Amino acid sequence: MTSLRRSFAAVTGAAALVTACGCTVQTTGPEGKGRPPVHIDVGPTATRGKPASPASTASATPADGKPPSTAPTTPEPAGPPPVVLWSRGDSGRDVRELQARLRQVAWLFDGPTGTYDERTEQAVKGFQGKRGLPRTGRTDTVTWERLLGMTREPGEWELYLMGGQPAAAPDPRCLTGRVLCIDKTSRTLRWMMDGQTVSTMAVRFGSQYTPTREGVFHVYWKSRHHVSTLYDSPMPYAMFFSGGQAVHYSSDFAARGYAGASHGCVNVRDETAIANLFAQVRNGDKVVVSW
């Protein structure tokens, strides 16, 4: 290549002859003496749009003139069918994560509840159909992998948006007597008798502007069909423990989860659970509200 550059630098006139295998440049120096030809290899001419030589296609037709036989191709073996991970009727934390991820891609707007119900099944069908997967409504390995690739790991807040998280260990002040043991960190209420947990339910609290008071209190009044005179809102199964603050059922909590807040009361979203609790709690029972 170096000699080629030197040849072109000194050239005063040139004649080129293009051949079938490349290009030959004949140069003449200043003294008029001929220089040896420089050969530039440009590769086979077949790559430059010229038809291939007959020799290159001879092998396409056998000598006897008969077309070559084509051996039957064996189809690739199909992979194993997708494994169903969860379907309608299943429950648990994995189902809760599935629901949280379906919420992230706007295929589910309720929960997570941890129960694979009809709404979850319909959400999975919609997700599958949008991506060309069989609309079974069951979450199999293929559906799950596709959903994982489109979403992020949900945090505890997303997993328990509608409540249902495990209760925290009870405050030591809850270990004696009859106690409504309320924990703001796990957002749960334990109904305890002599250190034993009778029932547990999800709760929510007041906002930063109307916080739920912390400390040790006692139930001083029960009102089954109470309506707030301050906010003109229903407070069924109300059990008052500190001024106007009470433990009571909240239809808003049941509908919106932790997207809302109370005006300081302890809201319960499970109406059946609080109806049973209301029947058991007595005036004078202890209430402990802690972080």
Rank of each mutant, 00 (worst) to 15 (best):
Thr188Ile: 03
Val287Asn: 06
Gly32Arg: 12
Ser290Lys: 04
Trp86Asp: 01
Met239Glu: 15
Met150Cys: 00
Gly137Pro: 03
Arg173Pro: 02
Ser56Pro: 05
Arg131Met: 00
Thr27Tyr: 14
Ser228Ile: 11
Leu147Lys: 00
Val203Arg: 03
Thr2Arg: 03
Gly65Ile: 05
Val124Gln: 05
Thr212Asn: 09
Tyr231Lys: 02
Arg35Thr: 11
Trp144Thr: 00
Thr19Gln: 15
Ala63Asn: 03
Arg5Lys: 11
Asn283Ser: 11
Pro44Arg: 11
Trp107Arg: 10
Asp252Ser: 14
Pro36Cys: 07
Asp252Met: 11
Arg135Thr: 15
Glu158Ser: 09
Val179Tyr: 05
Leu159Ile: 04
Pro170Phe: 08
Pro72Ala: 06
Pro37Met: 10
Thr57Val: 07
Arg93Asn: 04
Glu214Phe: 03
Val124Ala: 03
Ser91Gly: 02
Ala259Cys: 14
Leu148Ile: 02
Val42Thr: 15
Thr229Pro: 15
Pro172Met: 11
Leu180Thr: 10
His263Arg: 13
Val84Arg: 09
Phe253His: 10
Gly126Ser: 10
Ala55His: 00
Gly206Gln: 07
Val203Phe: 06
Thr74Ile: 13
Ser59Pro: 00
Val268Ser: 10
Thr141Cys: 02
Leu4Gln: 03
Lys184Asp: 02
Gly195Gln: 08
Arg152Met: 02
Ala238Asp: 13
Gly155Ala: 01
Gly149Thr: 01
Ala9Thr: 05
Ser53Val: 15
Arg88Thr: 10
Val42Asp: 02
Arg224Tyr: 10
Glu158Val: 01
Tyr249Asp: 08
Gly92Lys: 02
Val289Phe: 11
Ala15Pro: 01
Leu17Ala: 13
Ala15Ile: 09
Glu145Asp: 06
Gln245His: 07
Ser233His: 15
Val142Leu: 07
Gly129Trp: 06
His226Gln: 13
Val227Gly: 07
Ser69Asp: 02
Asp41Pro: 10
Asp64Lys: 00
Gly32Asp: 12
Glu76Thr: 13
Ala63Gly: 05
Ala167Glu: 05
Val266Ser: 08
Phe241Met: 13
Arg35Ala: 12
Pro80Ala: 12
Thr74His: 06
Leu133Thr: 06
Ser87Tyr: 01
Arg224Gly: 08
Gly65Ser: 04
Thr27Gly: 10
Lys50Leu: 15
Gly284Glu: 06
Ala10Val: 05
Phe127His: 00
Val11Lys: 12
Arg138Ala: 05
Thr141Lys: 08
Glu271Cys: 01
Trp157Leu: 09
Thr143Trp: 01
Asp171Thr: 09
Ala238Pro: 07
Gly129Phe: 08
Ser250Val: 12
Gly284Leu: 05
Pro81Asp: 08
Pro80Val: 08
Arg269Ala: 14
Pro30Gln: 07
Ala63Leu: 05
Val95Gly: 04
Gln99Ala: 03
Ala63Gln: 02
Lys66Phe: 00
Asp64Arg: 00
Pro134Lys: 14
Thr12Cys: 04
